[in-house]
Structure formats: structure tokens, C-alpha cells
Design a binder for these strands. Structure first.
Lengths: 179, 179
DNA sequence: GTTTTTATGTCAGTCATGTTGACATATCTC
DNA sequence: GAGATATGTCAACATGACTGACATAAAAAC
């Protein structure tokens, strides 16, 4: 919120007040980028959604399966930090995944209060089934835009993340460790 | 789904089967891109969400206010096509927005069955309040990545959209018309 | 060694947003 | 006039989020 004044958009009535043509064009390009992000994300999640529905699962299960698969042994607290939901919300999803034997918990050795989460073999299969079409979509989108576009794309995405969490996100996605 | 075989990710067991180092690295970069999209989108919607909550509205209201503001006179059917929700879902959100006098309906002149949607002055104010921090975030993300990154970014986002809808999305976002 | 904090789990109730199915009304098209 | 179309509405339900309260076991602090 404090950044607002640093941008050319702070007036709050760009269209009404006389705005320079250049700012108008910039603003137009910005709106297009925002709408594109909306449409892209909508279709980005559509492939896994279709698979999940057939299994009687939801988007929430996908997120858990993804991050547990990506960070084997992750603890409940770490997962909560990534997903930014309450433990009560996570509990229901996690319980279903454990009941279906897609995820298993292992009591921590150093700290026996912790529950380290792992995908079972069935869980790994599900993770793969969900990932394949999504990977295909993103890989094709990047390839068709020219491979040099990928870095620019990722840079902007990272810049969209809250500034004070960028470093954490970066370490999380690069080495699969939870800081 | 039919695209899967055209990518290097089709095996469904990339990690288990012996995969070349290059494919592994590609796959790793892909996963990072996907996770970035998740985190970026999460924070991208967070600013408007906070404002909406104070007003007792939700993300669904934001989407309607955005697209009506962007496409004044849009019909209900066109809005349904963009949002991809059922008319019953839209009805509830729309009713609240109309009750609060943020949106008004005008009966079509050519086709009197149609309801053309417009933002009221209060609706325009809300749209502006929601847009300002979101625009600031995206503008800064793009500017900090170097302005030439913007085109690559938008290209990939468009490529993520279902192929058979890309043209429609493009016309929608470029001229604010609903095809 | 007792106290406090932490990690996790659970119960109960609520809200926002989506869904399906059925039906009503006004208006346009043939 | 008959049928198709655009919109609205009622009812029931699912998902995934939320808050608040409380329980247990284990670690950490004193």
C-alpha cells in the first residue's frame, strides 16, 4: 500500500483527470497484463482440477500433494506457512489424504512433536498424474514464447510476491527446502 | 491433454526412470516456474482482498466490478462467458452489487431481454480503490524486471490460456470488447 | 523438576463461492 | 402462434476457507 505513491497510478481517478497519453497507454498495457494473469491462472489450474474431480478431491488436496512431494519430510507447520491457511483448514484436507493412504506421517526423531509428511507410492502416482498436463501446458507456453522469455517471466512473477517474502520463496523453490 | 506427448514430460515417472541431466534441469526449472505462478497469484490478489473484506465483499465481487468497469454495457451472458461460472453463482454476487448501488442494469434497446451492466459512481470508486494497489504491484514488478520483460511475460501468459480461446481473450483484453 | 512454550490435533459453528436441477417471465425469431 | 433465447429465481448441496475453544505430548526455559 505504501508503494502506491511511487507509481503513476496513484491518483485514483486516472480516467477522469486529464492524463497524458503515455500514462494512458501504460495503464492500458497494465490492465491487459492483469487480465492475462487472471485468464492464464484460470486455465493453468483447469487440467489438474478435472483429474481431481474424478478422484473426488479438490484443489486444496493438489496443493498439499504438490508441496509434500516437492519437500519430502516437510512438517505441518512448514506446510501451513507455505499454503497460508489455518491448521483447521489443512487438517481436513490432510486427514482425507492420510485416510486414502496418499500421504503418511512420520514422527520426528529430533523433535518428536513434529509430523513429517511424505507421499506414499499412491500419493506419488497422483502427484505425477496431476503434474503431467500442467507441466505440459507451462513447458509449451514457455517454449512457444521463445526460451529466453522464461527468465523474464519468472523474474516478474517473483517481483509480484510480497517483497519481504521473496527471499524465502526463492530458497523454497530453488532447493526444495523450507527456510 | 493431447499435448502431453509433444513435451519431454510425458513419461509420468521422470524421477524414477533414468532421465538425462538436461531434462532433469528443464523439469526443475519448470517446477520453479509453476510454484512461482502459485505464489505470485497468491499475493497478486491479496491487496484487493484486504480492501474487499473491509467492505464485506469478496473476490467474486471484485471480478464482476472489474469486468463491468472494463466493458461498460456488458450483458449478463457475456459476463458469464468471461467468468465461467453459472448464472446462479453470478446472480447472487450481482444482486448484492445492485442492492448496494455499485452496479446498475439498463434494459437493452435493440434486444429488450438483455441487461446491460454499468458501474455507478460508487462502483467506479470501488473499482479504482481495488485497482490502485494491484496496478502498483504489477507496474513495479514489471518495471523492476526491465521493461522489455513485459512482452515476454504477457506472451507466456497468453500461451497458458487454452489454445481455442486465445483469440477471444486477446480481443477481449485489447479493445475491451466482448466477441 | 516444575513451568511454560511449541507442534499438532480436534470439535463446533460460520461464511463465501461454487455447483445442479427445476421453473418463470419477457422478448425475439421463424 | 410456436419455439428459442436472455435473464431471474428457488432450493439443496459441496468445497474450502474462517474463528474460537480446548486437548495432548514433547521440548525448552527457569
Amino acid at each position: 500500500m505504501t508503494d502506491i505513491k511511487t507509481t503513476p497510478l496513484a491518483s485514483g481517478s486516472d480516467r477522469a483527470t486529464g492524463e497524458s497519453g503515455e500514462n494512458l497507454a501504460e495503464n492500458e498495457a497494465l490492465i491487459q497484463a492483469i487480465e492475462l494473469l487472471f485468464f492464464a491462472y484460470r486455465d493453468f489450474v483447469s487440467d489438474p482440477d478435472a483429474i481431481l474431480e474424478a478422484d473426488g478431491l479438490g484443489r486444496a488436496h493438489h496443493r498439499v500433494v504438490h508441496f509434500v512431494g516437492r519437500n519430502p519430510g516437510i512438517t505441518v507447520a512448514e506446510l501451513l506457512g507455505i499454503l497460508r491457511i489455518t491448521k483447521q483448514s489443512l487438517a481436513r484436507v490432510l486427514r482425507e489424504l492420510i485416510e486414502r493412504e496418499l500421504i503418511e506421517q512420520k514422527t520426528g526423531t529430533r523433535d518428536r512433536r513434529q509430523r513429517h509428511l511424505h507421499l506414499t507410492e499412491a500419493g506419488t502416482n497422483l502427484e505425477r498424474r496431476l503434474a503431467v498436463p500442467q507441466h505440459a501446458r507451462v513447458a509449451k507456453a514457455i517454449a512457444d514464447a521463445g526460451p529466453e522469455a522464461a527468465d523474464a517471466w519468472k523474474k516478474i512473477l517473483l517481483n509480484l510476491v510480497n517483497e519481504d517474502e521473496r527471499a524465502a520463496v526463492e530458497t523454497l523453490i530453488t532447493n526444495g527446502e523450507v527456510p
